[in-house]
Amino acid sequence: MEKQPMNESHKQLELEVKAESRREYQLQLISFAMMILLTFVAFGAVYAELMPVWAAGGFLIILAIIQVFLQLYIFMHMNNRGNTWIVGMMWLGIFVAIITVAALRLLIW
């Protein structure tokens, strides 16, 4: 019952699946390479003491945000079709998170 006839259209489909999976694989590897690169830049900049202290915070946080976006959108596929609610709720979480950090930072001294 489950057996598929190995006709031309099935072979074609198999090739398409393989091509699709290769594309996905490459995308994930590129994303991983970029994360490694961002990590090296962050550690390297601190190790070599390239930045004045006042600039370090903003620089490191920007690198972290880029890396987290790669995680969320490529590794975790947050932007897949039909994920409107997911994207909305995550952004709501990020919005509240920013307010929380800012408030605590300003309130504690």
């Binding site: 979480g93 509240v96 920013i98 929380t100 950090v101 408030a103 605590l104 930072r105």
Partner: peptide, 15 residues
Amino acid sequence: GETVLFASLFGTYVG
């Protein structure tokens, strides 16, 4: 929700 939870811990740490 976890994002907000960790944000509260990060805010405390930074403060």
